[in-house]
Amino acid sequence: MPDNTVIKKSSIKKSRRWSVAIRLIVALLLIAFAIFPVLWMISASFDNSNSLATQSLIPANAGIANYKRLFNKDPNFSFGEIKYWQWLLNSIKVSGISTILSLSITTMAAFAFSRLRFKGRVSILKSILLIQAFPNLLSLVATFALVSNFGNIVSAIGLNTHAGLIMVYMGGSMGMNIWLMKGYLDTIPRAIDESGMLDGASPFEIFWHLLLPLLRPILFVVSILSFIGTYGDFLLARVLLNDSSKYTLMVGLQIFTAGQFDKKWGVFAAGALIGAVPIMLIYFFLQDQIVGGLTAGSVKG
């Protein structure tokens, strides 16, 4: 009997070792699948030949020529109007402003829904949920017409303006952010409000001095995620902006595919890499918080 169990134990150990080995090999294959396009992008960006057809994983003539071309420092290369820094700046501006304004507005609204009791509260919350079932992406044509009409009334908020785009982003994010922030506010115990009320604080003081400091960490994560989401948007920016100096980075990168993509491949890769790295770093630094946010129900957009 004792012999038997020893044999069994060692065979379990042995089969486990095999299983780990196989799984490590599978992991290697999966990692290759996951990171190959990224390696390919990096290698393309340092391949001076700037051509899709001749690129290899280890560039034959490595250098930074593509980066020079991207910043218009190469007189021999010209393709349309590359305004890379301008695009990046536009993206940061549009995403930053719409994130900050949207979260300020929605956090205040969420406070009312979470802490105040008034007639119509539940109906409004339900209506917001219902409206969220129809993302504003679907009324694309109407949104385009609306912003175009705005431009005919006051040109500063019409088509081809960042203000118009920011307002559309804000409008689209309201419902979801109100729900998200209300959810976080609901987790803060009411006892905190009550202690403030006993001291005679007004609702605004309770919001500003007691709740907001507690919300700060989650507000930070939500604003990062919201910023990344807006930064990565393509469709609305593509529809509402039509001047290359107004483009956001994602729209700017897309115009590389017009005409002969394979002849601008390296320059595109350089631009793509610079646009991707900051977002990748944010993800890795905030990995745990983001995973927490994901299971709260947000889907990457």
Binding site: P37, V38, G232, F234, Q254, A272, G275, A276
Partner: peptide
């Protein structure tokens, strides 16, 4: 394995 998720999808789709 998380890397594909961390890059804006517009960029990776074009890659």
């Amino acid at each position: 394995l998380l890397i594909p998720y961390t890059i804006p999808s517009v960029i990776t789709i074009l890659i």
